[in-house]
């Protein structure tokens, strides 16, 4: 049974809400680009992948209307299926237009689609999806909390700076650093729960946070583990982005 947050979000997507699609792209776009590039085995140029924009996402294929997420598929699998149909459809259309020869693709090589057709999401893909959720929660917290508070959290947890150095750098005391840290951590726990709930279709996905050391139950002992887990996930997400290295596009 889907929770209210998830249902609301899916309904917004089905209603062709551009903002919802942009949100989806913002959170999971880099992961999908990396997966597509992996499927293409280098035969799909980065320009082709980068050409896809929010307009592409907004131009939904029929699959989102037919797809029933309550049938037990994971969010990540559903996302991949949507992306494959929508992105693949758009790529075919663009390639056909370039050749000016009609909609049916007469590509130089269509093998990538058939090879990717039966591929299930890998563990690496699932991990990337979870990291994207954590990054989304961090971005929400960054927007909501005071800049100074989040800067303390970033320096202490994400950059690994010691509390003493943070205090020295910002001209404050260590107790103040701890207080600000706690404030942000509390907000992050709440947002993380919301983000995971929104982008999860199965109970298994809902339990991902616990399995990754991000317990929502706050206590002193778990705070350190929580911070460590966040830091590690953040660094992995940044490294993945650097490895894929998809550059900016103009619109």
């Amino acid at each position: 049974m889907l929770n209210a947050l998830t249902t609301g979000f899916v309904n917004r997507l089905r209603a062709r809400d551009s903002a919802a699609w942009f949100e989806l792209w913002e959170v999971f776009g880099p992961v999908l680009e990396a997966q597509l590039n992996k499927w293409g085995k280098g035969r799909i140029g980065r320009e082709t992948v980068r050409d896809l924009s929010q307009e592409t996402l907004a131009a939904l294929s029929d699959s989102i209307d037919r797809y029933d997420p309550s049938k037990g598929a994971r969010f990540s699998t559903w996302l991949l299926a949507i992306a494959k149909h929508t992105l693949g459809d758009e790529i075919d259309k663009r390639m056909a237009l370039k050749r000016n020869s009609g909609r049916k693709a007469a590509a130089l090589d269509e093998a990538w689609m058939s090879q990717a057709g039966g591929a299930a999401p890998s563990a690496e893909y699932e991990a990337a999806i979870f990291r994207a959720k954590v990054t989304a929660a961090l971005k929400m917290v960054e927007r909501e909390t005071d800049f100074a508070d989040f800067s303390v959290y970033r320096m202490r947890v994400l950059d690994g700076t010691s509390g003493k150095d943070v205090a020295l750098s910002l001209g404050t005391s260590e107790p103040t650093v701890s207080r600000r840290l706690a404030r942000v951590r509390q907000t992050l726990r709440a947002r993380l729960s919301e983000v995971i709930a929104m982008y999860s279709f199965t109970p298994e996905e809902l339990g991902e946070a616990e399995r990754n050391g991000l317990a929502s139950d706050p206590n002193k002992a778990s705070d350190a583990l929580f911070d460590e887990a966040i830091g590690e996930l953040y660094h992995c997400a940044m490294q993945s982005q650097r490895a894929w290295g998809s550059g900016p596009t103009s619109s």
Binding site: S151, S169, L170, G171, T172, P175, T176
Partner: peptide
């Protein structure tokens, strides 16, 4: 140079929030 010294920071944080 530390962030606390920047002109926009005006002397840094207040210790007792």
């Amino acid at each position: 140079v530390t962030p606390a010294q920047l002109p926009s920071m005006s002397g840094g944080f207040v210790d007792d929030l």
